[in-house]
Design a protein around this nucleic acid. Structure first.
Lengths: 341, 341
DNA sequence: CTGAAAGCGCTTACAG
DNA sequence: CTGAAAGCGCTTACAG
């Protein structure tokens, strides 16, 4: 095992290579003009001494850093897992690394974590805002001139760049599938009115049913968090309350998973007694029981695009607000089926 | 929207509060002795001016930081998602934040990312090592006196703390279940010989079968990466090669998912034609088709314990190597069933 | 209990 | 193309 060595600094390299610290810095950053021979000498000195640069010192001096703050509801949700993997890949290709924090639906923690990542000197922040977030809550970053990109959930009337899915269309696609299958009584489970995704997915669903002449009393809506637990409880509650419906639209696949289990616990089998549609099309959805009909929301694209936008903002892009809304696609599987008779 | 303000520094606070910078620093860090009245004055000045401390400057001066590097194979794997959520929660409670990087099975990227997080000044590193990783590959961190904790995959004969599961026992549990169900021909899919998890899970499985008198020619082993794709391909290959077996042990649930789909594409239905056991007991496993029998590997506990260990090391704990191997538990569901006749 | 000053490791005008 | 020196925002002996 190697000895613990003293930290090797730019000035050590400078001495070893017989040049100034300025030249070492220019050489490793590709700035200024450095002759080819000097560059080689510097490189060699670095290798010999085992130099590891200190971004911390560089950040202090320049104000620039290669860290990006990532604030998500819950990294354990596979949607965010896929998102993060894709985001991290794009980021690291450009020499950046993510600092990740879970914030749930907790606005106070969101504010605290924004302050925290700023204190750590991030060059930018991407955030899937907690429900009820208003412009002011993310304001602090602007005061520090740190670019902010929102994703998945949009903050209306804000200057924040946004990348996500057309959530209204998600609900619309689900409703159209159910109408095609001749359903006439419906339930919606999950999604918070206080988040754009919750509001818009439900609205797209309900509006589309209304347009098809379905009256309000044939649609029951259970709003709530995007968790397995909420999906399960809601399913049980609906059955126990003798609510009648044959088609269930879940806010996302995690909720759908909970609901599937909840219905099963009350003897209602998805794909036989009930049709069910989720949202996100998680990789596992195709082997669920039954294989889940779900609306694809392209987590990996969202991650890639979010990375592209934040990097361009970090690099000084001052153009006006950018919003990207991907078109969702419904993937039909065996959890939905036509009503017969 | 607030004006872009100048950065507020400790010396601004000092001026505003009518004290020295030393007093401001002591006041916010709880170091030295500061009178109650002074502390209040300083706090007030910070609030008025909107002070956000700069950890970067503090790190440069003290050498201490509140960032931890997290290197995983793939954050999109729900096992690592659950792990990270739990790890981040425990970490942030102590005022630390994770920098996350995916490294896959790429040793070069692993080395590069270790250097990278060190350059970013992390206080510690936790890593689930790429296959074939040797002590030397993680050595660099020690040279910088940065504590390293390995998880999931163990590097034998190393000084690195380790937290993970008893992988040999995972294989043993799966084998015992199959034997109890009277199977006599077996397949193993996934897991690399060059990683401790791959090697030990397979070994535990095969050893247990041997002990029960099962000859080698009744066990086929398909080693490979822990991916859906490998699971799918292997399943197809096994069927196409007319290999006979009724019981399949998959390295983890992700591989099991791919294998399930692969077998299905060749007309072999898990739970009817074949018994299958996965590893990790992902939250979704209970609603798969069929509900998956899986060995629980306690991702959340692993995350919590990893956080506890790295924090104690950061805080100067110099005691000898710590290894934690959690006992796995088999959760029986409908993907396994007794052979009849 | 408080203040003045040095220094962490970089980068960057500036002068050569 | 290169070098000497200042300074980023903190913390920490040290002197009072």
């Amino acid at each position: 095992m190697a000895k613990h060595r003293q930290k090797v600094t730019v000035s050590d390299i400078a001495k070893r290579a017989g040049v100034s610290t300025a030249t070492v810095s220019n050489s490793m950053n590709g700035t200024g003009r450095v002759s080819e021979t000097t560059r080689v000498k510097v490189k060699q000195a670095m290798d010999e001494l085992g130099f590891v640069r200190d971004y911390t010192a560089a950040k202090l001096r320049t104000g620039r850093s290669r860290l990006v703050g990532v604030l998500v509801q819950d990294i354990a949700n596979p949607f965010y897992g896929e998102f993060s993997a894709s985001f991290e890949a794009a980021l690291s290709q450009e020499g950046y690394l993510p600092i990740i924090a879970n914030i749930g639906e907790n606005k106070e923690r969101q504010s605290a974590m924004i302050a925290e990542v700023i204190a750590h000197g991030v060059a930018g922040i991407i955030v899937s805002p907690s429900s009820n977030t208003e412009v002011d809550d993310l304001e602090r970053a602007f005061a520090h001139e740190i670019p902010v990109v929102t994703f998945v959930r949009e903050i209306e009337n804000s200057d924040f760049d946004f990348v996500g899915i057309d959530d209204y269309r998600c609900g619309e696609l689900a409703a159209k599938q159910f109408l095609k299958d001749s359903h006439s009584q419906f339930a919606v489970i999950g999604g918070l009115e206080s988040s754009s995704t919750g509001r818009l997915r439900a609205k797209g669903f309900v509006d589309t049913l209304h347009k098809a002449g379905i009256p309000d009393h044939c649609i029951v809506v259970k709003q709530g968090p995007q968790s397995r637990g909420f999906g399960r409880e809601s399913a049980v509650d609906l059955v126990d309350a003798h609510t009648t419906f044959t088609a269930v639209f879940c806010h996302n696949d995690i909720v759908a998973m909970g609901a599937t289990a909840g219905f099963l616990s009350r003897g209602r089998v998805i794909g036989e007694d009930l049709s069910l549609i989720g949202c996100d099309n998680l990789p596992e959805a195709c082997i669920w029981n039954p294989p889940l009909t779900s609306v694809e929301t392209f987590s990996r694209f969202v991650g890639k695009i979010a990375a592209d936008i934040i990097i361009s903002r970090i690099n000084g892009d001052k153009s006006k607000r950018r919003t990207v809304r991907l078109k969702p696609e419904l993937i039909e599987r065996q959890s939905t089926f036509p009503v017969t008779g």
